[in-house]
């Protein structure tokens, strides 16, 4: 379905604060034919240049809100906050020094829970250029 497209090449760059790199961002689109509440995300795992990204450093941004990635797994996480179909979910990895400008190999594993089928896990790997 969308497994080849869930890791987009849009908006890949370091995130800066006060003249310093404090992290980097990638943008994902959903692996399903409709939007899902964010609480239906079972897994977002990133590997950059073969190194797994610590999930505790990941923040999700969508529709003007930001959630620390581990928070979406809590039982009382808002259930009606949707990851919209076709819209980008921005993942910011907080990491001092950000990411070196240029091309990096990124591997995304995305698992979403559906209403009537088992959790779908898709893997998408790309070489992306970070600004």
């Amino acid at each position: 379905m969308y497994d080849k497209h869930i890791l987009t090449d849009e908006g890949c760059r370091s995130v800066w604060e006060n003249g310093k790199k404090v992290g980097y961002a990638v943008n994902l689109t959903i692996n399903y034919y409709r939007g899902l509440p964010l609480c239906c995300v079972d897994q977002i795992s990133l590997e950059v240049d073969g190194q797994p990204v610590d999930p505790n450093t990941m923040y999700l941004q969508h529709q003007g809100r930001e959630y620390h990635y581990p928070d979406i797994f809590t039982d009382d996480f808002p259930t009606d906050f949707y990851w919209l179909f076709g819209e980008k979910l921005r993942v910011v990895v907080r990491q001092d020094g950000g990411i070196d400008q240029g091309r990096h190999h990124v591997r995304l594993t995305l698992g979403t829970r559906r209403s009537y089928t088992p959790t779908m896990i898709d893997v998408c790997e790309k070489v992306l250029t970070f600004a």
Partner: peptide, 9 residues
């Protein structure tokens, strides 16, 4: 849709 599994727990 029947989002029976929308909650994690």
């Amino acid at each position: 849709f029947s989002d029976t599994r929308m909650w994690k727990n």
